[in-house]
Each structure stands twice: as structure tokens, then as C-alpha cells.
């Protein structure tokens, strides 16, 4: 997540000083998202260095002068190209549960079925809770939060469907022969699918 682009997007509308930006970024993007003021200040400084923003000093009577930031032309170009760059999700392949499941296929104290059921219970518990939050959320006043929760339900749903798929594949997986590392005369060992004939 880019705090940098968030600040550019906010400054695009009108010049503001750092403190206002820190509060607004929470309000606009997500009420629950607590961006620290320090992080805002340091990011602003980096943006200034990169000549994407600039500031004017506004004198005040009873406090230190405030810097009012505004976006530069270069900053606008940067913002535009950011909007137009699609975000590529990182596939969370091989996460902790995947490892657990695959290892359970080798046999052990707990069956793969049980591993799947346990995981499904947790996922459903989470989905239940997210759903509950979603029910309490008001799409008219908390749209970003609703969108976020809906994203979460979809991801949890995807995980649950994958578990469903795994359950359906359990029979196949039981016949699956895990790959054995084959000793190689020279060089480093390389991953290779086991040949049924070799087993």
C-alpha cells in the first residue's frame, strides 16, 4: 500500500498541511486504518525531495508556522500513471495451511480430512464474523469499509471453496505418491516428479 500515492491523491484536490492530511487519509480510505502522523510527515518529506509536492509556509500567531503542501505538475503525472497501473495481486501460494495439508498427506497423527475440517471451521468462523461486521456496516456511510469487508468475504469464500475442492480431491491425494529426492551423481539436486515405475 502506498501512503505516498494516497497523499498525492488528497493533495490533488486542494493544498493542505500535514496534520489535516493525516486525519483525512484515515477518513477517506478507511476509518479503521490508523496511519501515524509521523509516517505522513516522513512521506511528505520524501515527496518534496522527489519534487512531487511542494509547500508554502503559512504564518500563525500562537503556534509554529505551518507548511501548506500542494501537488506539483510532476506529482500530478505521477498520480495519473499510478491510477493507470493495474495492481497485480501476489498469489499466496504455499502458505502455512498448504504446507500443513500437504504434509498431513504423508501420514501422521492427524488425518488430512481432519486438517481440512479444522481449517474449514476456522475459515467459517472468520467468515461468520466478517459477515456479522458486514451486516452492521452501513453501505451509505461506510462504503470503503463495506467494500473491504466484502473483499474479505470473497477471499474467505475462495479459501473455503478451495478446501471443498481439496476434500473432493482427497481420494486422489491419498493415491498420490510424494516425490522422493533422487540422488544425483553430479551437481545440486533438482526437483523432479517421481516416475511411478521407479517407486
Amino acid at each position: 500500500m502506498s501512503v505516498k500515492h494516497a497523499l498525492l491523491a488528497l493533495l490533488y484536490h486542494h493544498p493542505q498541511h500535514g496534520y489535516e492530511l493525516g486525519r483525512q487519509i484515515n477518513a477517506v480510505v478507511n476509518t479503521e486504518w490508523d496511519v501515524k502522523l509521523g509516517q505522513v510527515a516522513s512521506t511528505l518529506a520524501r515527496l518534496k525531495d522527489a519534487n512531487l509536492v511542494d509547500y508554502e509556509v503559512e504564518p500563525t500567531d500562537d503556534a509554529p508556522d505551518r507548511k501548506v503542501y500542494f501537488i506539483t505538475d510532476e506529482g500530478r503525472r505521477e498520480l495519473e500513471s499510478w491510477y493507470l497501473t493495474p495492481e497485480v495481486r501476489e498469489y499466496r501460494l504455499g502458505d502455512a495451511f498448504y504446507i500443513k495439508l500437504v504434509l498431513s498427506l504423508l501420514g501422521g497423527p492427524v488425518s488430512p480430512e481432519q486438517v481440512l475440517i479444522t481449517q474449514r471451521r476456522e475459515l467459517f468462523q472468520q467468515l461468520h464474523e466478517v459477515t456479522e461486521l458486514l451486516r452492521q456496516a452501513d453501505a451509505r456511510t461506510q462504503l470503503p469499509w463495506v467494500l473491504l469487508l466484502e473483499s474479505a468475504t470473497m477471499h474467505l469464500d475462495a479459501d473455503l471453496r478451495w478446501i471443498e475442492m481439496c476434500e473432493a480431491r482427497l481420494n486422489d491425494l491419498k493415491h498420490y505418491d510424494p516425490p522422493q529426492p533422487t540422488p544425483k551423481p553430479r551437481g545440486r539436486p533438482r526437483r523432479k516428479l517421481a516416475q511411478p515405475s521407479e517407486s
Binding site: 500500500m1 479503521e32 486504518w33 475440517i117 467459517f124 464474523e129 461486521l133 474479505a152
Partner: peptide, 23 residues
Amino acid sequence: DDNRLKGRGNADQIREQLSKMVL
């Protein structure tokens, strides 16, 4: 499987996790 979903009351925890997700 018979799975009773309990309200664990950990809404804050979810919020935090979701923030992480975003960040």
C-alpha cells in the same frame, strides 16, 4: 461436521487484520 459458530467478539482483531491486508 457439526460446527457451531460462536460470536468470538473479536471484531477489533479482524479490523486489524484487514488493515494489514490493505497495508
